[in-house]
């Protein structure tokens, strides 16, 4: 058999063997192997995808938590602020009330004092008037004839009165 002239027998056997080998291995090896590889690759891809998804979910969950936490914090701050405001308002109100009451009391006291003072002055006036009448009475009783003595007497009483 020459190098460049193909032998008919070998062509025949090669064709039969190669084709038979192909059909046998395609069924028994190549297709099951390809399928298994594909299944494995799909499952790996799915696992990676689900891991990625879980990571994203975790991230969004965390974000949510943070948001909730921030909201809670904000609400707490608001509550505290409100409470403080309310307390302040109460305090301010109380203070205003107290000052109003005290002002009123002072005014009342002032009015009372004024009234008392007026009453006292009126009394003093009355008393002065009475005293004056008494003095006049005494003067009249003692020395009605003597102007000079009367005058001395009145002056003496007046001086006495001033000392009081």
């Amino acid at each position: 058999m020459e190098l460049l002239t193909p032998g008919v027998g070998l062509i025949f056997w090669q064709l039969i063997t190669f084709v038979a080998l192909f059909f046998f291995l395609a069924k028994m090896a190549w297709k099951p192997i390809m399928e298994s590889l594909k299944i494995r690759e799909t499952s790996i891809q799915e696992a990676l995808d689900s891991a990625e998804k879980a990571k994203q979910e975790m991230a969004s969950l965390q974000e949510n938590n943070e948001k909730l936490l921030a909201e809670a914090r904000e609400e707490r701050d608001k509550l505290i602020k409100d409470a403080r405001d309310a307390a302040n308002a109460i305090k301010e109100g109380a203070k205003a009330d107290a000052s109003k009451i005290s002002t009123k009391m002072i005014d009342d006291a002032k009015a009372a004092i004024e009234t008392e003072k007026n009453a006292a002055l009126a009394e003093v006036k009355n008393t002065v008037a009475e005293l004056s009448i008494e003095i006049a009475e005494k003067v009249l009783k003692q020395k009605l004839g003597n102007d000079k003595a009367q005058k001395e007497l009145v002056d003496g009483y007046v001086n006495e009165l001033k000392l009081n």
Binding site: G7, V8, G9, L10, F12, W13, Q14, T17, F18, A20, L21, F24, L25, M28, A29, W30, I33
Partner: peptide, 24 residues
């Protein structure tokens, strides 16, 4: 017409058999 199992045909069978064994 020479369809003899020549050296190369025998080799071909060995090759095919080896492939069957390995890949199954």
């Amino acid at each position: 017409w020479d369809f003899s199992i020549t050296k190369n045909v025998a080799m071909l069978f060995i090759n095919a058999l080896l492939m069957v064994l390995v890949f199954t």
